[in-house]
């Protein structure tokens, strides 16, 4: 029973992990930018929902779409006016600039939000439902469900809609996409905006089940990176599965070896995965 409970916790947490990685995988696959500020954007989304809830009394799940939209605008402008200058340049440049962004966002967040722990704590935060004797926290379940829905939405966008088709086309063949009327700068900005919006949604959900501090970004970036590599860059559901894999692995590690080791396992997985599935074989979006 304990094992079933732990697995359930792992799967629910993993869905959220998958959502965190989804935006990173999308941006990586299309723009070839490994966004080291991705975790910082997750953090911003978390604080946006926190302030809408704690300051204005908006329910977190109503605040979530607002934060998501806000992060889309943030990401769009960031790409349009900053990152477009380095897109398609050497990986080292984009790594450096997004690393710098991560530092800037983190310390501006510390100035603005203080370093105190914050939690998004609506009245129903502790509610559970019991399914076959397994306790399912409502908030975690909602986060999982939203992650799946958003992954489905991204899948639909990429495979069934003209914008998504153009996004895939541009990642496959930039020359041809331009020949057929795609404006890459615009498209990159929209793609990065979508990535940031996904980060924002993930951050809002993260804030309802864990503590927010301005410093959570770095470890969430790293976790998203691991999951994006495990899940691949082309299929949103693959990324969610990758997240679930990591979530379950972490939960099992916490159970058998103690919670201190859960980070060891996720980055241990990174090493294993990089050996089995080299990162350069990933760009197939």
């Amino acid at each position: 029973m304990l094992l079933a409970q732990i697995l359930t916790n792992g799967v629910l947490l993993g869905g959220l992990y998958g959502l965190m990685a989804l935006g990173m995988a999308l941006v990586w696959g299309v723009l070839n930018i490994v966004n080291l500020a991705h975790g910082a954007m997750i953090m911003l989304g978390g604080y946006a929902v926190y302030y809408l809830f704690a300051g204005l009394g908006v329910d977190p799940f109503l605040a979530l779409p607002i934060a998501t939209l806000g992060m889309f605008v943030f990401g769009y402008l960031l790409q349009r006016f900053v990152l477009n200058l380095v897109v398609r340049s050497a990986m080292l440049n984009t790594l450096l600039i997004t690393f710098g962004l991560n530092v800037v966002i983190t310390y501006l967040a510390q100035l603005a939000f203080s370093a105190d722990f914050r939690t998004i704590n609506p009245g129903y935060a502790g509610s559970n439902i019991a399914v076959f004797g397994i306790t399912v926290p409502l908030v975690n379940f909602a986060a999982f469900a939203i992650a799946i829905v958003l992954a489905g939405a991204i899948w639909l966008l990429l495979n069934k809609m003209p914008l998504g088709r153009a996004i895939r086309a541009t990642s496959q063949n930039l020359i041809a996409a331009r020949l057929y009327g795609v404006n890459p700068r615009q498209l990159y900005a929209v793609t990065f905006g979508i990535g940031a919006a996904l980060a924002g949604a993930a951050g809002g959900l993260y804030g309802t089940i864990a503590h927010l501090t301005p410093y959570i970004g770095a470890s969430l970036t790293a976790k998203s990176f691991v999951i994006a590599i495990i899940g691949g860059l082309s299929n949103p559901f693959g990324v969610i599965l990758g997240g679930i894999f990591v979530g379950v692995a972490e939960s099992l590690t916490a159970l058998y070896f103690g919670p201190t080791y859960s980070d060891v396992i996720s980055f241990g997985l990174l090493v294993v995965v990089l050996i089995v599935r080299p990162a350069r074989a990933l760009r197939t979006a």
Binding site: P162, R165, A166, R168, A169, Q172, N173, I175, A176, A177, L179, Y180, G181, V182, T284
Partner: peptide, 26 residues
């Protein structure tokens, strides 16, 4: 003014129909 580029430059991991749709993107 539409070009059929040297070397085809197709979107290789998209279906034929999707390639055609990309031609009509605008």
């Amino acid at each position: 003014l539409v070009q059929v580029p040297e070397g085809r430059q197709l979107f290789g991991k998209m279906t034929v129909e999707e390639n055609l749709r990309m031609g009509a993107f605008r």
